[in-house]
Write a protein that binds this DNA or RNA. Sequence first.
DNA 1: CTCCCGATAT
DNA 2: ATATCAGGAG
Length: 214
Amino acid sequence: MDSKTAFLIYSRLNDRYPHTETHFLHFQDPFQCLVLTILSAQTTDATVNLVAPSLFARFPTPESLAAADLEEVEIIIHRTGFYHAKARHITGAARAIVERFGGRVPATMVELLTIPGVGRKTANIVLNHAFGIDEGIAVDTHVRRLAQRIGFSDSANPDKIEQDMIALFPRSHWGDITYLLIRHGREICPARKPQCETCVIRDLCRFVHSEEKG
DNA sequence: CTCCCGATAT
DNA sequence: ATATCAGGAG
């Protein structure tokens, strides 16, 4: 894969999915973005958006969530799955933000990675989505699957895929390509039964070529 | 590597 | 019934 092909793929997806950023998590500040992104692990954003209003009505600030009763949090976020671990993650994250970052979500990768429940994927999402900072590329299960199918990377390792894609796209596209690939992955290119017949990057995709050849 | 874990599509 | 979903911790 060369950067010209990568740019062509970006352009096609960008034309196909306008205003993609409005299709995801509903948050009002970096704190809410961080909490909802932690909750979105292995969970659709629609489910996360469902619990967000009651969660933030009850715990509107890092201070209130840091002092929250674990069981009360578990009940509110129950539908997002992994609720026991996630309740500990978001209350722990709130505590870290209050105790170590003055009540403000930090805006650097190294600081975000010290927060409970935050890995590279979550950190990249928060940096880009809440702060508009393109420090890396968030590689979730959709991005990983599409990067391998399309041919952005030959690796199955998310960190390696991120490095390969960073080399392939200009920094100004790092945030957008993530959302475009996630939306394309959901609507056209899921793990099972990808709809290659209606895919706008069909002619540029390694996966289609290998399928056609057998 | 396993575990966490409910909701949804197939 | 089974796979998968905007992953991360132990």
